[in-house]
């Protein structure tokens, strides 16, 4: 009898442990994506303001900082999200760097908008919402 109760408790604990680990991993991933994308978006906003005020040197420095930040985040992101999303962000960032170098305001701002959209889209993809579930 005691052995049976012990075995039931053991199975229940295993199930509970597995479910809680899966949900914890999910929450941690979601939290990590939220934090990193928020930080990237902040840097992009700073670059956008500088481009709008024609501060090209500052914009260039900021985009290079953003690039190195992205290179670090990218390594972890590639373990969590589809690599196509990462490639799109990297590609746009490279284009933005070139437009800032060429001091092309229109193209820089349009690529900033695209980049923002791609990055905002990432945590949205992993968010637990009815829209994502269905």
């Amino acid at each position: 009898m005691k052995k049976r109760i012990k075995s039931n408790i053991k199975t229940s604990l295993i199930i509970l442990l597995l479910f809680s680990s899966i949900t914890s991993i999910g929450l941690l991933v979601n939290n990590f994506l939220n934090n990193t994308s928020y930080s990237l978006l902040n840097s992009i906003c700073v670059i956008q303001l500088n481009i709008e005020h024609d501060n090209w040197d500052v914009s260039y420095n900021e985009i290079m900082k953003l690039k190195s930040e992205w290179e670090k985040d990218k390594k972890i992101w590639s373990a969590l999200i589809h690599h196509d999303e990462i490639d799109k962000i990297s590609e746009n960032m490279e284009l933005l760097i070139e437009y800032i170098k060429a001091k092309d305001k229109t193209n820089s701002l349009s690529h900033i908008a695209v980049l923002k959209n791609y990055i905002e889209h990432i945590p949205e993809l992993d968010k637990l919402s009815l829209q994502n579930i269905f």
């Binding site: 680990s21 590639s78 373990a79 999200i81 589809h82 690599h83 196509d84």
Partner: peptide, 13 residues
């Protein structure tokens, strides 16, 4: 290879 391994492991788990 574009799909992260975790996208396979989490559903299996």
């Amino acid at each position: 290879t574009a799909i992260p391994l975790i996208h396979g492991i989490i559903p299996i788990l």
